[in-house]
């Protein structure tokens, strides 16, 4: 299939960017990133600079790839990262617009690559259980109800890709932050520090310049791991609890 690509090109963080148009020949079995590989090989062959985009595992779990395709983070398919999106979702002659995530807290590095280190700093603010190596009791000492553990897991599947921020009109990181808070809060091991953790992580989120929750829930729709906005409700309850002193 022949495709027209409109891709955002930007030399560096302080340069002005703009769309460039390219033609590429693709195969329906290719992944979206393999289609971009073909374009880049073409550009290198023409001695031009390839399109910078970030990627690594190409199996939907590392969270490195993160572009916005026709206005949607990771493209048109529900529950799918860009690397898992395959070209059978497109047809001959389609025009595809590809741009970086646009959010104040994710500055553009070059072309489609953005800086998401703000996510790391939110985790560093308290997204962990304070246990040193060697301090653990036997793993079966505390039974955890299967459904409860499963809900913790659902929140823990976040891959830190930033699609939630890209989807939100306010560029909010509520879903990312809430997923980690929920994951830990739902487990007995994480309960101990829960209130303190919530207030520290929320404070860091604000400090990084992420916006307030827009309540449109686009984050849940675009999340490649389909993490629920219920987690945001849980975070809000415990954040209020951390202020007013009631159990979250």
């Amino acid at each position: 299939m022949k495709l027209n690509l409109k891709i955002w090109r930007q030399k560096g963080p302080d340069s002005t960017g703009g769309f460039e148009t390219y033609m590429v020949e693709a195969d329906e079995h290719m992944s979206f990133l393999e289609m971009l590989d073909v374009l880049n090989e073409q550009l290198i062959h023409e001695k031009k600079e390839p399109v910078a985009f970030e990627h690594d595992c190409r199996e939907g779990i590392c969270g490195t790839c993160n572009m916005v395709i026709d206005g949607r983070p990771h493209g048109p398919q529900q529950g799918t990262t860009t690397c898992q999106l395959h070209m059978r979702a497109y047809k001959d002659g389609d025009t595809i617009t590809i741009e970086p995530i646009r959010a104040k807290s994710f500055p553009i590095i070059k072309d489609l690559a953005v800086d998401r280190s703000s996510f790391d700093r939110i985790i560093q603010a308290g997204g962990y259980i304070s246990v040193n190596t060697g301090q653990a009791p036997d793993a079966n000492a505390i039974p955890i109800e299967k459904d409860q553990s499963s809900r913790a897991f659902d929140a823990a599947t976040c891959i830190g890709c930033g699609a939630c921020v890209a989807a939100c009109p306010n560029g909010s990181a509520m879903l990312f932050t809430a997923a980690k808070i929920s994951h830990l809060a739902l487990l007995p091991q994480g309960k101990v520090e829960h209130t303190k953790r919530t207030s520290k992580m929320v404070a860091q989120m604000d400090k990084e310049g992420f916006g307030m929750c827009s309540n449109v829930e686009a984050c849940e729709v675009e999340c490649p791991k389909e993490i629920s906005t219920d987690n945001i409700a849980r975070m809000n309850r415990s954040f209020l609890g951390s202020i007013f002193g009631s159990e979250g």
Binding site: I129, P143, S150
Partner: peptide, 19 residues
């Protein structure tokens, strides 16, 4: 395994709550 569980790694469990 002890360390991972203490860190909050949600390893698979049986209905009785054990690993």
């Amino acid at each position: 395994i002890d360390q991972a569980v203490a860190q909050g790694v949600p390893l698979a469990r049986e209905y009785g709550g054990l690993l």
